[in-house]
């Protein structure tokens, strides 16, 4: 369903992605792991078209997302939802307006938008009380839930999660992980998550991809990951400072 073909991306002389290739099948939850600064977020933004890749292509449901001049084409066939690292809620809008942003743009009546927003808030464990608050009045964990409600409100076929548990305490993080798992299964979406939180990866992943120095260096299931003899994977999942993944002194 999603084919990532030889994606390259550089910023000036810094080559961040050096040819990323992988396929994700429909309904699968893929998690991309790797150290900070290895290009995980850049890859996600290239797939979403938030930044343009230099080479390669992304094929979504058979539709090429880059043209020959490497310009991103807004695809129409597939609905995509995104949960951003910092939630990225619109701080000038109330919670229910954030959740129903997509619907309100389509000209759906205010009353219907409000009702649907409450339904989506309920799906992520929030009640109507928060609907008329502004994002700044909520905790980080609640903001993440609202962002998740906004992402699922468009009934997406593909969901992207960028560091969904960053900045949350372990309990809130687990709540978010379970919600992601539950909602992805509920709506039957394909999910791509980038994270370096292994607890999160273990909960939500069907398949893990490890990125290092701009390339996918390993992929496999959770079980395969735990028993992997790959020294990069081993060092990363056990959080050891000694090993081939060295501390970047620059």
């Amino acid at each position: 369903m999603i084919e990532i073909r030889d994606i390259h991306k550089s910023f000036n002389k810094n080559k961040v992605l050096k040819g990323i290739n992988f396929n994700i099948i429909r309904g699968e939850s893929a998690v991309i792991i790797g150290r900070s600064g290895t290009g995980k977020s850049v890859l996600l933004k290239c797939i979403l078209g938030l930044i343009n890749a230099d080479e390669g292509n992304v094929i979504l449901n058979g539709e090429e997302l880059y043209n020959k001049k490497m310009n991103y084409i807004s695809q129409k066939k597939t609905k995509i939802g995104m949960l951003f690292q910092g939630s990225a809620l619109f701080d000038s809008l109330k919670i229910w307006q954030n959740v129903s942003f997509y619907d309100s743009r389509k000209g759906i009546k205010k009353k219907t938008c409000y009702k649907k927003a409450i339904e989506n808030l309920n799906k992520v464990g929030l009640d109507e009380k928060v609907a008329n608050l502004f994002p700044s009045e909520l905790s980080g964990g609640m903001q993440k839930r609202v962002a998740l409600a906004r992402a699922i409100s468009i009934e997406p076929e593909v969901l992207f999660f960028d560091e969904p548990t960053t900045g949350l305490d372990p309990i809130s993080a687990d709540v978010i992980n379970r919600l992601i798992l539950e909602k992805v299964k509920d709506i039957g979406a394909t999910a791509i998550t980038i994270t370096h939180d292994m607890a999160s990866a273990r909960v939500i992943a069907d398949k893990i991809y490890m990125i290092h120095e701009g390339r996918i260096i390993w992929s496999g299931s959770i079980g395969e990951m735990e028993e992997s003899s790959n020294k990069y994977v081993n060092q990363f999942i056990n959080g050891k400072s000694l090993g081939p993944l060295t501390f970047d002194k620059n």
């Binding site: 933004k45 979403l48 078209g49 938030l50 995509i80 939802g81 995104m82 951003f84 690292q85 910092g86 990225a88 809620l89 619109f90 701080d91 942003f101 997509y102 743009r105 906004r150 468009i154």
Partner: peptide, 9 residues
Amino acid sequence: EQIDALKSL
């Protein structure tokens, strides 16, 4: 990232 969020919607 609110501008990116707009694009994603």
